[in-house]
Simulated scan of single mutants.
Amino acid sequence: MRQSVVLSLVSLFCLISCAPPSYHHGSDLKISTTSGSVTGFVNSTAPNVRQWLGIPYAAPPLGDLRFAPPQAPTPHPVNASAFAPSCMQQYSNGSTIYTEVLKEFLINGGQSEDCLYLNVWAPEATSKGHGKWPVFVYVPGGGFTSGGANSLYKIPDKWVQRTQGHVVVIMNYRVNVFGFPNAKGLERQNVGLLDQRMVVEWTKNNIAAFGGNPDSIIFWGQSAGGASVSLYPYAYPKDPIVKGIAADSGSPGIAGSSDTAQSNFTFVASLVGCTGEPAVVLDCMRHNVTAAALENVLSLYQISARSPKITFGPTPDEVIVFANYTDRAAKGLVAKIVRAGI
């Protein structure tokens, strides 16, 4: 009898002290941000990682906001439990290593013009260093024509689960003609890069609530994302916000559009029936053409390999993208931050 009681007590003690500690998330998943209150989740794949998916960092870039710099969103409660669609993708019929072998690098899920959302992964709130974790803000690649946050090989939940020592923010940003229109009549051309800057600003203003250190942000990107972060310190030499950049390939030299006449936009506009003076063309392209129609016309034209060849990517505007980076560097017009290749 005594032995059975002892065994029972040992079993009870082990049940209390030997089992993995339970973690009651509660309010740790509901965060107040400049976008509104966002409620995240934890799943069994990464049980010690808090996730918030589909947080709006800017207003939907629709109507008058198509081709325009991102604007602050109207704050509202967000059930941050699912990825938002990727931005409108330029597609092709070409065969690449990504379409044939590494398909998990491609976007997973749909696409929409309403796409300016970001995602946050953070360790559980009880982890050591909460409030001081360094933050990686990641820019996906895609040749400035495609790409987005919902890409299976780029979801960092297992990484954060393993380290319990950092926060990751991954964004969508506008690409192809939606992000880099280079159109007559526009004051700002490289709005896709302005989307990225808004994500950095959002992170600075909000990441402490998730446990991240707003003074320890690394701006990191792959391919076109790597080029983006390489351009960044030249664009914001006095106010970079971030403490460092990390580029998985890509360099400032990728921004070298020769479309100084801004004819690519005018040509694509003519294919969808938008002609006339610049202001008329711009208004037509914003209000008379659906995003899907514009995407299809651009993609099919590229697939046909017709002339003239047209592309949309970062173009020198001498504001955030420059024609001569050697000169900028020589003059010291570059942020004094840490640079690293990964």
Score class of each variant (00 low, 15 high):
residue 209 A to E: 04
residue 199 V to G: 01
residue 286 R to L: 03
residue 243 K to C: 11
residue 205 N to T: 09
residue 259 D to R: 06
residue 202 W to K: 06
residue 203 T to D: 01
residue 275 T to R: 12
residue 229 V to K: 09
residue 218 I to P: 04
residue 211 G to H: 03
residue 284 C to F: 08
residue 249 S to E: 02
residue 227 A to L: 04
residue 235 A to Q: 01
residue 274 C to M: 03
residue 259 D to A: 12
residue 199 V to P: 01
residue 233 P to H: 04
residue 187 E to L: 14
residue 289 V to K: 08
residue 251 S to A: 13
residue 257 S to L: 14
residue 263 S to M: 15
residue 286 R to F: 02
residue 197 R to S: 14
residue 295 E to Q: 15
residue 241 I to F: 03
residue 269 A to H: 10
residue 266 T to D: 10
residue 205 N to E: 12
residue 191 V to R: 00
residue 209 A to P: 03
residue 265 F to K: 06
residue 196 Q to R: 10
residue 287 H to L: 11
residue 271 L to W: 02
residue 197 R to A: 14
residue 279 A to L: 10
residue 216 S to Y: 07
residue 197 R to F: 13
residue 238 K to G: 02
residue 254 I to F: 14
residue 199 V to E: 01
residue 195 D to L: 12
residue 199 V to A: 08
residue 240 P to E: 04
residue 252 P to I: 12
residue 208 A to Y: 01
residue 203 T to H: 07
residue 230 S to C: 13
residue 222 Q to G: 13
residue 283 D to P: 01
residue 217 I to C: 07
residue 232 Y to D: 01
residue 214 P to A: 05
residue 205 N to A: 15
residue 245 I to W: 03
residue 270 S to R: 13
residue 245 I to G: 03
residue 219 F to Y: 15
residue 252 P to V: 13
residue 255 A to T: 00
residue 265 F to R: 07
residue 279 A to K: 13
residue 186 L to W: 06
residue 214 P to M: 04
residue 294 L to K: 05
residue 203 T to M: 10
residue 280 V to C: 01
residue 213 N to I: 03
residue 188 R to G: 00
residue 204 K to D: 00
residue 288 N to Y: 05
residue 274 C to E: 02
residue 251 S to L: 07
residue 246 A to V: 14
residue 198 M to K: 13
residue 184 K to W: 11
residue 231 L to H: 03
residue 187 E to Q: 15
residue 206 N to V: 07
residue 215 D to E: 11
residue 231 L to W: 02
residue 276 G to Y: 03
residue 227 A to R: 05
residue 219 F to I: 09
